[in-house]
Amino acid sequence: MLLLNKPIVAQLSEDALRTFPDECCGFLLGLEKHDYRAIEEIIVVNNAKEGDKRRRFEITAKDYLKAEQYAENKGLTLLGVYHSHPNHPSVPSEHDRVVAQPYFSYIILSVNVSHVESIRSWRLNDDLQFEEEKIHTLVNSLTQ
């Protein structure tokens, strides 16, 4: 299960709407316990894809390196990545699956011009297929 507090949901939604009709992207940082992951912070990053950003995103290696270093300095773990699907469902595409990393949570926001339709999270299983990860939204952070 993935725990998101309301400010995190608001930040994710804001980024998806701000970048529409392009895809937004960024990192999920938090704490992992044996049966849940709590997202404590997100890092918004630039969609570095050269070409059609309306249906593709890419994060530079330097942005990844900075995020990993930031997480370590804050005592958090880099737990995953979020991105938006403008005018498309919050379901991973085959392209998402092929390039996905094991272990990471992949939050996908379905967004249109006026609002976020849905937010869902996915993780690769041992057969490298995506399985949905249940999201539970909290009013406040677990650690504050």
């Binding site: 895809e23 992207c25 894809k49 249906r55 593709r56 995103f57 890419e58 994060i59 290696a61 990844y64 390196l65 990993e68 990545v81 991105h83 699907h85 403008p86 498309h88 991973p92 595409s93 392209h95 998402d96 390039v99 996905a100 990393q101 992949y106």
Partner: peptide, 12 residues
């Protein structure tokens, strides 16, 4: 030395 996986994706 940092090992950095490529991070990408997209809707369709």
């Amino acid at each position: 030395i940092s090992i950095i996986p490529a991070i990408a994706g997209g809707s369709h």
